[in-house]
Write a protein that binds this DNA or RNA. Structure first.
Lengths: 111, 111
DNA sequence: ACGCTATACCTCGCCTGTCAATGTATATTT
DNA sequence: AAATATACATTGACAGGCGAGGTATAGCGT
């Protein structure tokens, strides 16, 4: 039972959206950014990342396009849509509520 | 996509353990306590609750015994073990870490 | 007597997100 | 020539959550 992964479950999409709010990006870059941010203490697995991209794109929250790289491996860029921004905002408020809820529910019960 | 349920995923065990820290209890009572605590905004589903009991008992984190009710439906009481207290403490620190991590990762990326 | 509600437990089977394993391709470094 | 870094993608298994359904006891109203 990897607590970390189970607790982080469901945040993948929000994490991705957060990275697309200010600029378009691609999978590898987002993954690297996360690793740096967390000093390697958490890694969004590739399989998880790419399935999340599919989900988000299918839901209309992001759109993708191939980058015009002239050298190196090709990159699939993602851009956030209005729908994606909406989802991000919703997820953020949901998270604030969930945090309080969990804090309340996991506090030792004294009655 | 019910955010709430996915975000709460993995906290079921900690929630249960929190309720057993100070006194033995049984499924129905724990469920009611949660509903009151959250004013009905969140309900731990029965199926989820009982499967979690099985998991925790099998892991040696709780033990169960039948209550000596002389009237009404019989109750299966649960008591937390040392192992359970240890797990609870671990989950709490994990949660504190996870909270910070998620806050960091879901904050709009500006670089 | 009969149905309804509350208390109290339990299980089966589906759904969904995660992830290990595996595969592809290009460019650079050793 | 081989290893490493960049970059994408899929498959299949696994685990937790939960809808739907089931069992049993007790009390209340009609």
């Amino acid at each position: 039972m990897l607590i970390i992964s189970d607790v982080l479950r469901g945040h993948t999409e929000t994490i991705i959206l957060a990275h697309l709010i200010n600029k378009d990006s691609y999978g590898y870059e987002i993954n690297k950014a996360i690793q740096e941010k967390t000093q390697g203490s958490f890694e969004l697995k590739e399989a998880t990342l790419y399935t999340a991209f599919r989900r988000l794109e299918q839901a209309g929250c992001i759109i993708s396009y191939w980058g015009g790289e002239e050298t190196g491996a090709r990159r699939r860029y993602y851009a956030i849509t209005e729908c994606g921004k909406k989802l991000y905002a919703e997820n953020k408020t949901d998270w604030e509520n969930a945090k309080q809820l969990i804090d309340k529910l996991t506090g030792a019960c004294t009655n």
